[in-house]
Computed example of a mutant assay.
Amino acid sequence: MSATTVLTEKWPVLGRHEQAAAWLSVWTDLGRAPRTIDAYSRGLAEYLLMCEREGIDPVAANRAHITVYVRELASRPHYRGANVFSIDSGAGLANATIQQRLVPVRLFYDFLLEEGLRESNPVGRGRYTPGRRAGGQQRGLVPRLTKLPWIPGEHEWLRILEVARQEPIRNRVMLALAYDAALRREELCSLRTDDVDPAHRTLRIRAETTKNRLERVVPYSASTGVLLSTYLAHRATVSRARGPLFLSESRRNYAQPLSLWTWSKVVRRIALASDVLRFSTHTTRHLCLTDLARMGWELHAIATFAGHRHTDSTLQYIHLSGRDLAEKLKAGMDHIHSWRVQMIAEVDVPKGAKGGTSR
């Protein structure tokens, strides 16, 4: 059974639209990551379902039809609230999620353009256009909001650690590696036994498991090394076979590779137990990269460690707290203050003023 057939069975609406199925087939044949194909399929399926409800021919849709889809995404019920006042009101889909949902729709119309079935892309993208006002920048369909990543404060992190100490050894070593090596969820869950080099305390992050297909080697700390050694001894009681590093110990999937969703459930359980609800599988990555910045690492070094192709991505992860910025400002102001006082003290005394008194 082909991957496209599996996807059309999961989302039947894709099979009802010939061009959508053809587009997915092309992306699958190009060897895109299964999770990428799955996300694209879901996004396009949601759009096509909207088209069917509204009686819109997706091949002939225009920009007004796309805005109907955007409005639906912005007003969709969300676990954080029932009412939507704006795209970023805390209810409805988040701005970043809406951007992600529009990506497969835009790529679908790019495909239709290449096939000669359309003359323009109704989704479009923000791009530079010579001759336009405001610097020639054309806005995208949805304004992109760039926020600083959230990281836990000291007391929140201590509560997380207190709960994590009660977790099984597998979960504890996964949490330690996720922070130590700033690993993404898929990178962590995809680690294999031969990716670990205990002698040099390094991990090989294989290209096929990364977001941008860049392989890298990252170190982990001595403390994590001790924890990892304990886990490897425990893992041998579950399975002695080489392969995935982290194995399920549930009765249903015993000794099978640990899934992404199982790890997400573990992290969510820790978040609820510690009452730090914003803690997620990506928080440890945010925190690690931020700590590296606080220690004075250069931007390019952090980018290499994180596996970023461009430093622009790294800047989004580096989140310096207000206290850090206040300390930097205070140090700068102290220097400026000292300089100004010194300049005042060094002002030449006017001639004839020595020894004189004012009357």
Rank of each mutant, 00 (worst) to 15 (best):
G140Q: 08
T193R: 07
P244K: 04
K147L: 13
L245K: 03
S321M: 07
R71W: 10
K211V: 15
S338F: 15
T67D: 10
S280Y: 06
W11E: 01
I66F: 02
A96G: 09
H319W: 07
E186A: 13
K211A: 14
A178W: 00
V84T: 12
E187V: 10
L73S: 01
H200P: 03
R35N: 09
H200A: 11
I344Q: 03
T202S: 02
T290S: 12
I151A: 06
V26D: 02
Y254G: 05
V13P: 00
D180Y: 05
V226P: 00
Y69I: 04
E208D: 11
S239H: 08
R71E: 15
V347E: 06
A134K: 08
A331L: 13
A273P: 03
R63E: 15
P34F: 14
R42S: 11
E186D: 10
N121H: 07
I98V: 13
S75Y: 11
K10G: 03
M295I: 05
L93H: 05
L292H: 02
H65M: 06
K328D: 11
A33I: 10
H335V: 14
T97G: 08
R53Q: 07
T67P: 00
I151V: 15
P152S: 08
P58M: 08
H65T: 08
Y231Q: 02
G352E: 15
T146L: 15
P219N: 06
L175T: 02
K328H: 12
R213I: 09
H300Q: 07
G225P: 00
S221V: 03
C288G: 02
R127C: 14
S2Y: 01
A271I: 08
F108M: 03
V103L: 11
V267S: 01
T357D: 13
R71P: 04
I160C: 02
R359A: 09
A45F: 01
L191F: 13
V218K: 02
Y40F: 13
G322T: 15
Y317T: 03
R16I: 00
F108V: 04
D312V: 08
R42D: 04
S223T: 11
S248Y: 13
V349P: 06
S248V: 14
R101L: 14
I318V: 14
A271Q: 10
E208V: 15
V341K: 05
T224V: 12
A233K: 07
L7W: 00
E187S: 13
L112R: 00
W339M: 12
D334C: 11
S358F: 11
L232G: 02
A345Y: 01
T357E: 11
E186F: 11
L287A: 12
P257E: 04
Y79L: 09
D197F: 15
Y231W: 11
A271M: 12
M333W: 09
T8D: 01
A22N: 02
C288M: 14
Y231V: 08
H337S: 11
G31M: 09
H308D: 02
I169E: 10
G43N: 04
S250F: 11
P168Q: 04
R294G: 08
A3M: 12
L191C: 09
G126C: 10
G116D: 06
